[in-house]
């Protein structure tokens, strides 16, 4: 298995590396092509047009690279994805953009299971908003996909998150509510527990109730109460799809319990009542993904030569109405670095 992968890698790089070493002269080709024929990019989205897609599009506008975007939204319906694959192939586009883990895995396959009939293989592709590119087997290694795709990661490394959390206030007992059916959250809990040993805090976890194989929304508020009674002084909100959907319930409950909360993704802070978060903004991630697309389309780089990395700039977002409601103020040093969400209104508890 490993031998086969190595062999595959070797063969692929033998084919791709010369191409990378002798890049087509960009000045000769792109200006001649740009006015006449824009690059055609097929954008497969999961839940509509949002910031990452906007960032992706704006990058080309700002860089003056002519593109024709063919935008398709699955509307969180997995059944539509095979149609997208067929359409992209039939249109013969220059590049495919995939949004989210599900779209990416279904359209591009995993590195150990690629079927040219079901997946896109000949057209280069870039992916964004995949929380665990390695864990989901999209790529074997963040240094290189080893195949015809490139992409970006968007989750802040856990130790950076913990340092940021501690810089607001040193925490003694960190609480976490999560969906036990999502593997991401289990991994996050393990990492947090491990880091707690070094950073001097204790982790208390509260998985939401599961009935008939489905997480129960109504149990969220009770879980938060339990944590509060357990002496938790800070709530950690993992990048969990179930909790993202029900973020108002979760953050509302935390506010009711006067518990400050830290979110690993931007939505709970930007469009709900989490107190603060350290995230890579979707918009920035979209821009970085467009930069990878530019490397492939304009500069003729092989996708396998592009590493899968997050944006440089970490965004610290503080939700001021929540801060005021909790009267739990951020330190001046952190505040001077942070983006502040403040609509001027006071939140109700």
């Amino acid at each position: 298995m490993i031998m086969r992968r190595l062999l595959l890698g070797a063969v692929l790089s033998a084919v791709l590396v010369p191409a990378a070493l002798v890049p087509a002269p960009a000045w000769a080709e792109s200006p001649a092509r740009s006015p006449a024929k824009p690059y055609r990019i097929y954008m497969a989205l999961w839940r509509g047009w949002e910031d990452a897609a906007q960032g992706f599009k704006d990058y080309f506008t700002n860089q003056n690279i002519p593109v024709e975007l063919i935008i398709r939204d699955a509307g969180q319906d997995r059944a539509k994805l095979p149609e997208f694959v067929a359409e992209a192939k039939q249109l013969g586009v220059d590049l495919v953009f995939t949004w989210g883990t599900t779209v990416t895995v279904d359209m591009l396959g995993t590195y150990d299971k690629v079927d040219p009939a079901k997946h896109i293989t000949d057209i280069p592709a870039v992916f964004a908003i995949v929380s665990q590119p390695v864990g989901a087997k999209v790529v074997p290694d963040l240094a290189s996909s080893g195949r015809n795709i490139a992409g970006t990661s968007y989750l802040v490394p856990m130790d950076t998150q913990v340092n940021l959390l501690q810089s607001y206030r040193p925490v003694r007992k960190l609480g976490m509510v999560y969906n036990p059916l999502e593997k991401n959250s289990l991994v996050a809990a393990d990492e947090l527990r491990e880091l707690g040993r070094k950073n001097g805090y204790e982790l208390a976890v509260a998985p939401v109730d599961v009935v008939d194989g489905k997480p129960v929304v109504e149990s969220i508020a009770r879980k938060v109460r339990d944590l509060k009674q357990d002496g938790v002084d800070f709530l950690y909100i993992p990048p969990d799809t179930f909790l993202n959907v029900n973020r108002d319930v979760l953050t509302g409950a935390a506010l009711a319990e006067k518990m400050p909360s830290f979110a690993a993704a931007e939505n709970p802070v930007l469009s709900s009542k989490a107190m603060f978060g350290g995230v890579y903004r979707y918009y920035t991630v979209g821009q970085l993904t467009a930069y990878k697309a530019e490397q492939i389309l304009v500069h003729k780089k092989a996708p396998a030569d592009l590493p899968i990395d997050p944006p440089r700039r970490l965004s610290i977002i503080i939700n001021m109405p929540v801060v005021r409601a909790l009267e739990f103020y951020p330190p001046m040093g952190l505040l001077s670095l942070a983006e502040v969400v403040d609509n001027g209104a006071e939140v109700r508890q």
Binding site: E327, Y329, P330, P331, M332, G333, L334, S336
Partner: peptide, 8 residues
């Protein structure tokens, strides 16, 4: 009620 002024 400013926090962390000293370090700042």
């Amino acid at each position: 009620k400013l926090v962390g002024v000293d370090e700042f």
